[in-house]
Design a protein around this nucleic acid. Structure first.
Lengths: 113, 113
DNA sequence: CAGCCTGTGAAGCAAATACTTAGGTATTGA
DNA sequence: TCAATACCTAAGTATTTGCTTCACAGGCTG
């Protein structure tokens, strides 16, 4: 059940509005800790915890040059969430198709009688 | 900021593994409270709280006939999450395309010199 | 109508989460 | 070299989350 743990980490990271806004920012381009923190009314250590959650989930990566740490989005990882959603959609659509088919059969039977 | 609040509710609902498993079950087809609860090692009132979160997020709907409450998936609502992810992807792909283009230009300049 | 289902409501508790303050460390520019 | 910058670590706190137990309401069945 390693897969479940991965999904867990990604969806947990996505569940917080601050973290989602950071991801929105990083989708536009890489940024440093203080650039990312600037829009938020929050002390830096609090904010850095969010970055740490994002990095643990591997939705982002970072590297430090000198005293500046730069974050970057990790597009691959988003597929964990996308795939989960796609799979659900696949399931219910298959089911609804079966139901449509069933209704259609019923109507045909009806008209033949 | 209504849109943000909606996104919030959906991603929060999706962040819990129990709730995600319920959604997996409901994608396959509607089910009652006790059917949904059966796989989980959890007291019913705890479990019902998860159902309540899911219903508040509007990822599911329910109706009660007699003493039995039946839950159903609400496919439309999943688009909130899907759209958020799609929008991020759109952004970083646009950016990476621009970067590719820039590199290509550089190389052309190089070969002309 | 007695008793068993199926689900609800309320209160409480422990752990996780999101935040704070205080006090660093390493880097860099004057 | 010294002070400002950029970030990090540790410890503590309030709130939220996820769970429990206990008690009960309403519907169904013999």
């Amino acid at each position: 059940m390693v897969q479940a743990a991965v999904t867990e980490g990604v969806f947990y990271a996505l569940s917080n509005p601050t973290r989602r806004k950071v991801l929105e920012q990083l989708s536009v381009g890489p940024a440093t800790v203080s650039e990312l923190a600037a829009p938020f009314d929050m002390k830096l250590p609090s904010f850095v915890q969010h970055l740490s959650v994002l990095e643990q989930s591997r939705l982002v990566t970072s590297k430090k040059q000198g005293r500046v740490r730069t974050y970057e989005i990790a597009p691959e990882r988003f597929k964990v969430a996308e795939n989960w959603l796609t799979e659900r959609r696949r399931e219910w659509e298959a089911r609804l198709d079966r139901f449509d088919h069933y209704v259609k059969q019923l109507k045909e039977k009806e008209s033949r009688s």
